[in-house]
Design a protein around this nucleic acid. Structure first.
Lengths: 235, 235
DNA sequence: TTTTCTTACTTGTACGTACAAGTTGAATTT
DNA sequence: AAATTCAACTTGTACGTACAAGTAAGAAAA
């Protein structure tokens, strides 16, 4: 078998969601219907749905079904909302360093998993601005394993995570974050156009993905004076 | 059944990890061993392990086993979970000011809803410590409307939100937060035992509740040097 | 008409079985 | 001694079955 059975079903459902065959708010076929359609058992159907659940494509309701959820692009600002969505329209992104192979740094935002360090490290760096005001620098590290020709191609819609999803079928499944208030160092001060020693917010992130040996490690240095970091939770 | 079987197994394993019976790097009993020990099937054992996996307590290795992972100590705050629940055991809370009626301040962390300001304002203030280290000051404002005899009674288990839930059947339904890195002012520096001008993290919060005219407005001033604010997000 | 009950769906939990596939170390062969 | 094979573990996938529990809508009773 080229692929596991549940992964096949998962892919079918996921692509239909992405293409809008199942729109937001719609219910997917019930588990028993999936069994009949694809000649599988409920165990397998549930496993496929569980993956979609983990990746935020659907929500399950006991006694009702699996409803297609609105999927918010995860760009890592504590909320599920992306940077552009959170801030508004006039967001500009400046690429400070295009994705390229580097050696792994001795210290990452979070300790890396064992396997990741075997493959080379891809690094890129961006500066986020609201209008003309720089508000955040972003540094990203991740393992190149399995990401063929990543350096050659442009980002889809300028979005790193969209690129992972569309080109490699990799989804962000979660993130671990850590917040610190720090004095701005020389580099951050220069990039954010503030005085050295000004208080800035550093967000350390480990994004986990649907690819077991791929996590994205990021540092965000934020000037929160004019644009604080926002966050909304609802149950 | 009071609880699901897999949840029971999950709880047993989790508490053993938290108590150090299974230390970091150790392998949990294999799935088949769990089956024998607890008279369950592998389906159930795997479900329990899956939960631990989702919550980051273990990592699974095909062909080897389930290894206890290092969980970083940080203050898991940005969720709706309370402080004590998020941090763990050696948390101390010092009441700086018991709940009492005050006039509404001219500026709250977030603009108040109209109706709230009609009733008097309850205010209280606490200092949170991990061991002997003060890590966070907490100021809270909310409308007294409908909270009879709130000032007279002690908090349930020392928890404000538990008190709301148990005594008034009010649940937190969501929160809006805003993060800023600031220079510590005189008061914060004094309470947190740091130098004035040291960078601290201020979290502004508006908790919404199941009672339509009750929101809780809070400022948290955090010394993130030793204990950064943590956050885990899973879809 | 309104309420209650039943029925037919849905997902959730738990049982049991079988084989595939990764890991490890000891036994066997080279 | 070194390389290979094998056996005994581990987790991963997939089959099948049964019943519990939540949901919704129509039938029956008030």
């Amino acid at each position: 078998m080229a692929q596991t059975r549940y992964r096949q079903i998962y892919n079918i459902l996921k692509s239909r969601i992405q293409q809008g065959t199942y729109a937001i708010g719609d219910y997917l076929p019930s588990e028993n219907e999936l069994c009949k359609t694809y000649k599988i058992t409920r165990t397998t159907a549930r496993k496929a749905l569980d993956e979609l659940l983990k990746e935020g494509f659907i929500e399950k309701q006991h006694g009702k079904g699996s409803k297609v959820k609105e999927r918010r692009q995860s760009l890592g600002l504590l909320t599920v909302k992306g940077f552009s969505e959170a801030v508004g329209e006039n967001v500009r992104t400046i690429i400070l360093q295009k994705p390229q192979i580097l050696s792994w740094p001795k210290e990452l935002p979070f300790p890396a998993d064992e396997n990741e360090l075997n493959a080379p490290c891809i690094y890129f760096e961006r500066l986020r601005c609201v209008g003309d005001v720089p508000v955040m620098t972003e540094s990203n590290w991740f393992s190149a394993h399995g990401l063929n020709r990543f350096l050659d191609c442009e980002f889809v819609d300028g979005s790193f995570f969209k690129t992972l999803s569309r080109k490699y079928l990799i989804e962000v499944t979660g993130s671990e974050q850590e917040l610190r208030a720090l004095f701005a160092d020389e580099k951050s001060a220069y990039l954010l156009k503030i005085e050295q020693g000004f208080p800035i917010l550093r967000i350390s992130i480990k994004f986990t993905t649907s690819k077991p040996d791929l996590n994205i490690y990021s540092y965000l240095y934020c000037n929160t004076e004019k644009y604080p970091i926002g966050n909304i939770y609802t149950h």
